[in-house]
Amino acid sequence: MSTFEPKKPACSASLSRRGARGFTLLELLVVIVIIGLLAAYVGPRYFSQLGKSERQTAKAQVEGFGKALDAYRLDTGHYPSTEQGLNALVVKPADEARWNGPYLQKQVPADPWGRPYVYRSPAQDGGDFDLLSLAKDGQPGGEGDGADVSYR
């Protein structure tokens, strides 16, 4: 019995040398430049979306707190005072007989920028309450990414 050994082509030595040589420095530099161009194009678009998502998160949280404040008012007949703050939605205030909460499932989180939400009752403009996030810049007012996110 003989074992079958396939015949190697005459050019196999040159193929094996060519396959083992790797990439040249020029080829690697071209690939690095292409990756850099892609990152320069995609990076700013990605980070602009990140700012949008923070604002959308703050807006959704402010809307949720506003609805919880409205439920609190329906039960008690008034909104929590500025001193009681948003914590009154989670923990029953000592002087509140008709409190039927908690109105939020979890503790009140910080806004997406790590600062507490601003709550005032009555509102500065004479309304029922002010509820807002001071956004990215942490200052009242602002424009663009620094514009406050408020309820109503």
Rank of each mutant, 00 (worst) to 15 (best):
Y41I: 09
F47K: 09
F47P: 06
S14W: 01
A40S: 07
F47S: 11
R17T: 10
A60W: 11
E5R: 10
G101V: 01
E54N: 07
E63Q: 12
Y79P: 02
E54W: 06
G64E: 12
L74Y: 10
D111L: 02
P109S: 12
G51K: 06
A97G: 02
D125E: 14
Y79M: 10
H78K: 12
S12Y: 03
Q56G: 06
L15K: 08
R17L: 12
R73F: 03
Q107K: 07
A97S: 08
A88K: 01
R21A: 15
Y79G: 05
K8P: 04
L132W: 01
L134H: 00
K52I: 06
A20E: 11
L74Q: 12
R73V: 03
V30W: 13
A94V: 02
D70K: 05
G127H: 07
L86E: 03
G19A: 08
L38K: 12
G85K: 02
P93T: 04
K59S: 08
E96G: 01
G141M: 08
T82C: 10
L131N: 03
G127T: 14
N87S: 13
P44A: 02
G85S: 08
G101L: 04
G36E: 11
A60R: 08
L50I: 08
P109E: 13
P9D: 14
S121G: 10
G36P: 03
P93Q: 10
K8I: 14
G85D: 08
L134N: 00
N87V: 05
K106C: 11
G114M: 09
Q124L: 15
A39Y: 05
S53Q: 11
P102F: 00
S121K: 06
S133A: 07
S121Q: 11
Q61D: 09
P93W: 04
I34P: 12
A88F: 00
A60T: 03
Y103E: 01
V91C: 04
A110S: 14
L86F: 00
F23M: 15
K59H: 09
N100A: 05
V62R: 00
L26P: 00
L25Q: 15
D111F: 00
V62S: 01
S16F: 02
V33G: 15
I35F: 10
A13F: 08
G138C: 03
S12M: 14
A71E: 13
D137H: 00
P9N: 13
L28Y: 12
G43D: 11
V62Y: 01
Q61M: 10
R98A: 13
N87D: 14
P109I: 10
Q139H: 08
R21N: 14
Y117E: 02
G114D: 07
Q61I: 05
G36H: 03
A60G: 04
Q56K: 13
V30I: 15
L25V: 14
E5K: 09
P122V: 08
K59W: 06
D128G: 05
G77H: 03
P102H: 02
P140R: 03
E63H: 09
P9W: 09
A20D: 11
R73E: 11
S121R: 04
R18K: 08
K59P: 00
E5I: 02
G101E: 03
D130N: 12
L104I: 05
G85N: 04
A110L: 15
L104V: 04
E83Q: 13
